[in-house]
């Protein structure tokens, strides 16, 4: 059942993004930035966590989960160390994504030549 929910959740987000792209002058860069901010906003009242428990890992795939994980990491360190913890742990959960993206793109850029 989580497969169907994962399919529908990611698919509907991509559908919304495609409709925005086709009908406005916003570029894909604008849309991904907006979606990250929306994901961070939805984590204020734990809404995104509820979506993840319902939908499964499909909710972690879209870029909205990036904003959600930023807020979530900030909250993990703010519990022991107060308001300063917001800046201490902001990258703690997303670091695996950012680090592996940097690492793989560097390695592949060394190996492969640019096409076109």
């Amino acid at each position: 059942m989580t497969y169907i929910y994962s399919f529908l959740f990611t698919a509907s987000l991509c559908l919304i993004a495609q409709i925005i792209l086709d009908n406005t002058k916003l570029t894909p860069g604008h849309i991904t930035s907006i979606f990250v901010v929306i994901g961070a906003f939805l984590d204020i009242f734990n809404i995104y966590d509820r979506i993840i428990t319902r939908v499964g890992a499909g909710a972690l795939v879209p870029i909205t989960s990036f904003g959600h994980l930023l807020v979530h990491g900030a909250m993990q360190t703010s519990i022991p160390s107060g308001l300063m913890g917001v800046s201490m742990g902001i990258f703690s959960l997303t670091s695996s994504g950012i680090a592996s993206a940097i690492f793989f793109s560097f390695i592949f850029a060394l190996i492969f030549k640019p096409k076109n």
Binding site: A11, S12, L15, A57, P62
Partner: peptide, 14 residues
């Protein structure tokens, strides 16, 4: 097309 490819990636991730 965006609906289908996005959904397939989400289901693949799951």
């Amino acid at each position: 097309l965006a609906f289908l490819t996005g959904g397939l990636i989400g289901a693949f991730g799951n």
